[in-house]
Computed example of a mutant assay.
Amino acid sequence: MNRRFVEKVSGFEVVGIAADRGEAVDQLELLQPELVLLDVYFPDMNGLEFLSFIKEQHPDSDVIMLTAAKEVDAVVDAIRYGVFDFITKPLIISGLQQTLRSYQEFRKKIRTLKKEGAAINQQEIDHLIHGSGMKASKESKPVKGIDRITLEKITTYLMQTEGATTDQVSKETGISRSTARRYLEYLVAMGEASADLSYGVVGRPERVYRRGTKEKG
């Protein structure tokens, strides 16, 4: 996973990346991360077994699991082990970032409750359980008619540019112009991209799309 996708979300920093079990164990001990993104498949270990290890040896580290959509048993086991959330592959960058924001909100709420020192009520419990994690990530799934892989391709391309027109996106991704335009407008509507008009020397102005929302001011 590219670290810049994670660090695009304000407040997150990738402090380590492990390629095998040995590296993962060493980095957990050394870095004591608040959050771990863990794939079910590792070259030399089972991700679920390592999830159990994390919960036993590093209970203060939360885990978001990456798994294939059809692995029902893996999802159930991950929930039993206390995973914060899981993300299905192929990975949708906007979905990952929404899950990270949900986690961020979850930790913020925990800190606020601890600071207040008062007994937690049912409404606050419901917010912690249902207002973050798996429910929040499900709400970020693409709507009907939006293909995950196509959306991922366009989103990734936008993140690599400082701005692109529909024609440029179509040419670079191999997607038809009409499809590219529909997905770009979907990203704008979801707040995952912004659009501005570019006035050339001749012809009509073109919409230029950029990753992220347009800053106000």
Rank of each mutant, 00 (worst) to 15 (best):
M1I: 10
R4D: 13
R4S: 12
R4F: 14
F5V: 13
K8C: 03
S10M: 07
G11Y: 03
V14I: 09
V15Q: 01
G16K: 03
A19T: 06
A19Q: 10
R21P: 00
A24Q: 04
A24D: 07
V25K: 03
Q27C: 09
L28P: 09
L28D: 05
L31F: 14
E34A: 12
L37C: 04
L38M: 11
D39T: 10
D39Q: 06
F42P: 02
F42D: 02
P43G: 01
D44K: 02
G47F: 11
G47I: 13
L48I: 15
L51T: 01
L51D: 02
S52I: 07
K55E: 03
Q57W: 08
D60F: 08
S61A: 14
V63N: 00
M65T: 07
T67K: 00
A68V: 08
A69C: 01
K70T: 12
D77S: 13
A78H: 02
I79A: 06
I79H: 02
G82V: 10
V83W: 04
D85E: 10
I87P: 01
I87E: 03
T88G: 05
I92S: 06
I93H: 00
S94Y: 08
G95W: 02
T99S: 15
T99A: 15
T99E: 09
L100W: 06
S102T: 02
Y103L: 05
E105N: 10
E105S: 12
K108D: 13
K108G: 15
K108E: 14
K108S: 15
K109F: 10
R111Y: 07
A119L: 08
N121C: 05
Q122F: 04
Q122L: 12
Q123E: 14
Q123F: 08
D126H: 11
L128Y: 09
H130R: 10
H130V: 01
S132F: 04
G133K: 04
K135E: 15
K135G: 07
V143D: 15
V143P: 07
V143I: 11
K144L: 11
D147V: 08
T150I: 10
T150N: 10
T150F: 06
L151H: 02
E152D: 11
E152F: 14
I154A: 00
T155R: 02
Y157S: 00
M159S: 04
Q160F: 00
E162S: 07
E162R: 02
A164F: 02
A164M: 09
T166Q: 05
D167V: 13
Q168Y: 04
V169G: 01
K171T: 09
T173Y: 05
T173H: 03
I175K: 02
S176P: 03
R177W: 13
T179M: 12
A180Y: 06
R181G: 00
R182F: 08
Y183T: 07
Y183N: 09
L184E: 06
E185S: 01
Y186H: 11
A189R: 09
M190P: 00
G191V: 13
G191C: 10
E192Q: 11
A195E: 13
D196R: 04
D196I: 10
D196T: 12
S198N: 08
Y199M: 04
V202E: 14
G203Y: 08
R204N: 13
Y209F: 15
R210T: 14
R210H: 09
R211H: 14
R211M: 12
T213W: 07
T213G: 05
K216V: 12
G217C: 03
